[in-house]
Design a protein around this nucleic acid. Structure first.
Length: 929
RNA sequence: GCCGAAGUGGCGGAACGGCAUACGCGGUGGUCUCAAAAACCACUGGAGGUUGCUCCUUGUGGGUUCGAAUCCCACCUUCGGCACCA
């Protein structure tokens, strides 16, 4: 007699239909039990469930099943993100209507999803392209418009020439600014576009991250994306009196502002430019505008810019400074104008050096480092000077032509300058740079602390040295010597200098002290800036949710009244390969009447970014296609929301995960929900790679089709393998031999559970029973902890160990004992979340009542799981020299005595007596001799 | 350049202050077979050896500790994100 063979396909088909027929996964509100809303990111209805979907969904399902067995009323819904360009492309290519194509795909994917054996709540499925769904997407648009969170503007926007549509900023990826979907580099276009004011929630989107249990990497990405900067707004004035407002994060460097830069698109450029400079400025602006049209320039391109001819007045010291325009200043961030402080900003430094603009350091290096290069020919008696340097222990190098001196701290610098001057020949000069910037002459020392001194320095140095005549600024005399390279610029928060009454203000308080003073003087105010941009939602495509807006010649932009929703997509649009949306040419859709005046009007023909559909889908699931005043049933929402555990790919960190947080905050403000964050916990899985460790793609030829494996080895094997690959958050590579190993495991498990055996004739020993129960309870403990922490790979490893143990144990006398039965039942319960079909079949064959998935998760008994003997490691001088099998409650004295008595330990102690003995109960004895 | 993650046998990985290499893959030998596959059993980090043993080994170099894959510092490599954001 042998066990029946493990027939995966038969078992899986049988249980899938039984689960469905018995409504095992139907959703039920149950106020008596704690709820758990588990959610995996909804798939796009591509028509094919690929291995990446399996990799994302299977562990998510396993965790949901685990929660269910732990007493939670668990909701694990599924649906389809069904709008989007692929459907439209299919329509153009194959002449199939996107609606038909999409629904056929959904039907196919439903079948594939069923094969996965997940506990999907099919009764709450949503498909985002159905009017019953998108009526609410449109409703949200109107609500946001009512709240002032939606607006239309004409501006240059990112446009994908392949998809023929605009994109939101966060949908443009990488160095080459390519389309997130098709990887084509984007171009800029000036268009009228609808935007959502996500920036209105910038501060809350940032601070809310502290309240949610999300992976740090995702939170960090969102923080960087939001890009909060604290600083001040400061108003400069042109000589003619035009206010020029700048944003700066370093108001403490204001005294070092030696020029200003306006973005080429800045409106003031036109006004400020002098007649003389107008031709070059106009040429530059034209070129900058043109560069926007074509591909973006290389990242580390040489800085460019032109002088406008105008001068500004630095409000803190009255200094006249030139106003330039350059494309390194962006019109879209801050005010589009900056004060340039080249001494403490590397971009301004590069620009100043290139164009010969003055540089005045105003912050002292916190490290006190200074350097000085002295021309040996400038010294009376070089040997006397070097002897002095040696005597006072000042480090220097002699290059043959100059002494390169390194100095530390004010006292040393001052002492050095005094000595140096005595040694210098008249008509020569030397410099000090770093913690102090000074030019030293036999008869004077001049600090580089103001425009006036800068010119004085330049005049004297030019007179002293013919090569200095080429220098345009005093600073350039330093920049020309590579010895100074690391002390020329410093961006640290240091003590202020050369800054009037603020001189001496320490770095820690400088920023706030200056901001307070600016506000008092009416010169500026505190200001926070964000890198985050508003969400551009218009898409020039057909297959999306229509934007419910009507344009009327008399009434202007008119929202479609709520009662007229939904604005339906016409089904008779013509799909031509023109690259333009068919809606634009569909008279029946486009031409309408104004809801206000009844006159002729036309509809908005752009549709919405599909990320809108997925921004609120988790709310739709609680009561799909809701009919009523709100997008979902309030009682259902109150019970299920918010999502307790979300899982999905990290690629959505700054897109979907940002959008849905924004939606939730807006929904709270419209009174729909009473919480601030949509998903309390998030787990971001890694990516599954091909067998060659490369990203799966058709061009690599390494794409794995899950259906091939599901139809031969069965879904449970595929599930188990995907979870066994490695830590879920790190992703991993497919392995065609690796999956065989998991199939082998299930087969061995099957045989171990079901292979008949005659009852043993001997009574088993107590120790054998205890050992079996010990590993059983230990396994419960580790599998429970591992699944809680999403460590499915180690959970499976623990189950394999139990299986290996039981395979041997079943040959012994413990077979058939209550301990054996306990081990078998436990095994089935523990595998249930991971391999739901095998578990159900084994459960039935063991005589369990339907269904294993409705059983309680086993609880381990710490006493049974406790080790009877532990291995005590004995180290001599940090090296393992012996291992003792001892009872875990051994006394310290006894442990020490046994350790010292060990033969091998004595060999390594070599007759010496222990200096120190470290005892860690249950772990080790460490002897130091 | 900045931020984040990761570097452990032939491979995926485990351990995350206390027995390095759990579990799986692959490999070697064996059982079964006319033979092969499957299945099962044994071995499998490297070097040495008198085989109930030693030395070496967790990207590199330092440090802390009785003890470091694990903690600290510096560096190298790979991957991901951001990048002229004032």
């Amino acid at each position: 007699m042998h066990a029946p063979k493990y027939q995966a396909l038969e078992i899986e088909a049988k249980w899938q239909s039984r689960w469905e027929a018995s409504g095992l996964y139907a959703t039920q509100r149950d106020e008596t039990r704690p709820k758990h809303y588990a959610l995996t990111m909804l798939p796009y209805s591509s028509g094919d469930l690929h291995i990446g979907h399996w990799y994302a969904m299977v562990p998510s399902d396993a965790k949901a099943r685990f929660m269910r067995m732990n007493g939670y009323n668990t909701f694990f819904p599924i649906g389809f993100d069904a709008f989007g360009l692929p459907a439209e492309n299919a329509a153009i290519k194959h002449g199939i209507h996107p609606h038909k194509w999409t629904l056929a795909n959904v039907e196919r994917m439903r079948g594939q999803l069923r094969q996965m054996g997940a506990m999907w709540a099919w009764d709450r499925e949503v498909i985002t392209c159905l009017p019953e769904y998108y009526v609410w997407t449109q409703w949200f648009f109107l609500k946001l418009l009512d709240m002032g969170l939606a607006y239309r503007k004409f501006a240059p926007v990112d446009f994908c020439p392949k998809c023929n549509t605009t994109l939101a900023r966060e949908q443009v990826w990488g160095d080459d600014h390519h389309c997130e979907r098709c990887e084509t580099p984007v171009i800029k276009r000036d268009l009228n576009q609808w935007c959502f004011k996500i920036t209105a929630y910038a501060e809350e989107l940032l601070s809310g991250l502290d309240q949610i249990d999300w992976p740090e990497r995702v939170k960090t990405m969102q923080r960087n994306w939001i890009g909060r900067s604290e600083g001040a707004q400061v108003t400069f004035k042109s000589e003619e009196g035009d206010p020029i407002v700048v944003f700066t994060t370093r108001p403490d460097t204001l005294w070092g502002a030696t020029f200003m830069v306006l973005a080429p698109e800045h409106p003031l450029v036109e006004k400020l430019t002098t007649a003389e400079q107008r031709p070059v400025v106009e040429a530059y602006r034209a070129q900058a505008a043109h560069q926007n049209e074509i591909e973006r320039m290389a990242v580390d391109k040489e800085k460019t810019g032109v002088f406008t001819g105008a001068m500004a007045i630095n409000p803190v010291n009255g200094q006249r400074i030139p106003i330039w325009t350059a494309d390194y200043v962006m019109m879209t961030y801050g005010t589009g104008a900056i004060m340039a402080v080249p001494a403490h900003d590397d971009r301004d430094m590069a620009f100043a050096i290139k164009f010969g603009l003055e540089i005045i350091p105003v912050i002292k290096r916190p490290d006190g480092l200074a350097k000085s290069a002295v021309d040996i020919a400038a010294l009376r008696e070089p040997s006397v000077f070097t002897a002095w340097l040696d005597e006072v222990h000042i480090a220097y190098a002699d290059t043959g032509s100059e002494l390169q001196v390194s100095l530390q701290g004010d006292a040393e610098i001052n002492h050095y300058i005094t000595q140096l001057r005595q040694q210098m020949l008249p008509g020569t000069y030397a410099c000090v740079a770093g913690s102090r910037f000074a030019f030293v002459y036999a008869d004077a020392t001049i600090n580089l602390d103001s425009f006036a001194n800068a010119s004085a320095i330049l005049i004297r140095c030019r007179a002293a040295n013919p090569t200095a005549r080429e220098a345009r600024t005093a600073f350039e005399l330093l920049a020309g010597n590579s010895f100074y390279a690391d002390v020329l610029m410093d961006t640290a928060m240091g003590e202020m200098m050369h800054s009037g009454t603020f001189t001496g203000t320490p770095g820690e308080t400088a920023k706030s002290a200056v901001i307070d003073w600016l506000a008092e003087q009416g010169l500026g105010k505190p200001e926070v800036n964000y890198r985050l941009r508003d969400w551009l939602i218009s898409r020039q495509r057909y297959w999306g949710c229509p934007i419910p807006i009507i344009y009327c010649d008399t009434c202007g932009t008119v929202p479609v009244p709520y009662e007229d929703l939904p604005v339906l997509l016409p089904d008779d649009a013509e799909f031509m390969p023109t690259g333009e949306s068919p809606l634009k040419y569909h008279a029946g859709f486009r031409d309408t009447t104004c809801p206000k005046c009844g006159g002729p009007a036309h509809r908005e023909t752009d549709t919405m970014d599909t990320f809108l559909c997925s921004s609120w889908y988790q709310y739709a699931y609680v009561s799909p296609y809701h009919k009523g005043e709100t997008p979902f049933d309030r009682a259902d929402a109150a019970y299920w929301l918010p999502v307790d555990q979300y899982t999905g790919g990290v690629e959505h960190a700054t897109m979907h995960l940002m959008y849905t947080r924004f939606f939730t905050k807006a929904m709270r403000d419209m009174g729909l929900v009473d919480f601030d964050e949509p998903m309390l916990k998030l787990f971001s899985q890694g990516m599954i790679l091909g067998e060659d460790n490369e990203k799966m793609s058709k061009s690599h030829g390494n794409v794995v089709n899950p259906d091939n494996y599901v139809s031969t080895l069965g879904a449970d094997t595929v599930r188990a393998f995907l979870m066994f690959i490695g830590p879920w958050e790190l992703g991993g590579s497919w392995s065609s031999t690796g999956i065989e190993g998991l199939n082998r495991f299930i087969n061995r498990l099957w045989t171990m559970m079901l292979e008949p055996r005659e009852a043993p004739t001997q009574v088993p020993g107590d120790a054998d029973i205890a050992a079996l129960r010990r590993i059983t309870h230990k396994t419960i403990r580790s599998v429970t902890d591992d699944i809680k922490a999403f460590k499915f790979n180690t959970a499976l490893a623990a189950l394999m160990q139990l299986n290996n143990y039981m395979i041997k144990a079943r040959e012994s006398d413990v077979f058939g004992t209550p301990a054996w039965d306990e081990a078998q039942r436990t095994m089935v319960l523990l595998i249930a979340p991971l391999m739901p079909h095998v578990a159900e079949e084994l459960w039935e064959r063991l005589g369990g009542v339907y269904s294993v998935h409705q059983q309680n998760w086993p609880v381990y008994d710490p006493e049974l799981a406790a080790d009877e003997l532990v291995t005590l490691v004995v180290q001599v001088n940090g090296k393992v020299r012996a291992r003792l099998q001892v009872s875990p409650d051994i006394t310290e004295e006894s442990a020490r005595a046994q350790a010292l008595a060990n033969e091998n330990v004595q060999v390594f102690m070599n007759g010496r007596s222990p200096k120190k003995v470290v005892y860690v109960p249950g772990k080790l004895v460490s002897i130091v001799v």
